[in-house]
């Protein structure tokens, strides 16, 4: 894994768009360099959405007692795989999700579910009081003949 860029933002929804635009742009540049077989728009949208979801969760679960909390977004790559980690110091959470029961008109709870569906792999680690949510996606489209 080669590190690409790390961005640390204050845990505030004001910076949500910065995080997701950044993800979209990193994904675009990466996909462009990695190969041209991928549907680049789709690849970028997956990153834009996933980071938007993860950052929103990080801000939502930040304790209000510590307004100076930060969220770190770290991009790295390996061959044709792009990885992004969202790191925060919030309380531990359970990254295993089920599809929300849509018939009950739920207003939330789609975030991690969307991430799981958009990305190839999602992993969660708790280390030294930080949450690390790592998502990867390969920039090659597996197209059946």
């Amino acid at each position: 894994m080669n590190p690409i860029i790390t961005l640390t933002l204050q845990a505030n929804l004001r910076y949500l768009r910065i995080a997701s635009i950044m993800a979209c742009n990193v994904a675009e540049i990466f996909a462009d360099l990695a190969c041209n077989a991928t549907d680049i728009a789709e690849f970028c949208h997956a990153y834009e959405l996933s980071v938007s979801e993860a950052f929103t969760n990080s801000v939502r679960y930040a304790e209000p007692s510590q307004p100076e909390k930060q969220v770190t977004i770290h991009f790295s790559s390996n061959n044709s795989t792009l990885a992004v980690s969202i790191i925060d110091t919030n309380p531990q959470f359970n990254p295993v999700t089920q599809a929300p029961d849509i018939s009950c008109y739920p207003e939330g709870g789609y975030g991690l579910f969307l991430i799981h569906r958009l990305m190839d792999t999602v992993s969660y680690t708790r280390k030294d009081n930080t949450n690390i949510l790592t998502m990867t996606k390969q920039a090659t489209m597996v197209h059946e003949a």
Binding site: M1, H74, N78, A83, S85, S123, K127, I132, T134
Partner: peptide, 12 residues
């Protein structure tokens, strides 16, 4: 952080 990512990458 990269340690986690590397291990995760190879696990897959």
């Amino acid at each position: 952080i990269d340690t986690e990512i590397v291990e995760h990458y190879y696990a897959v």
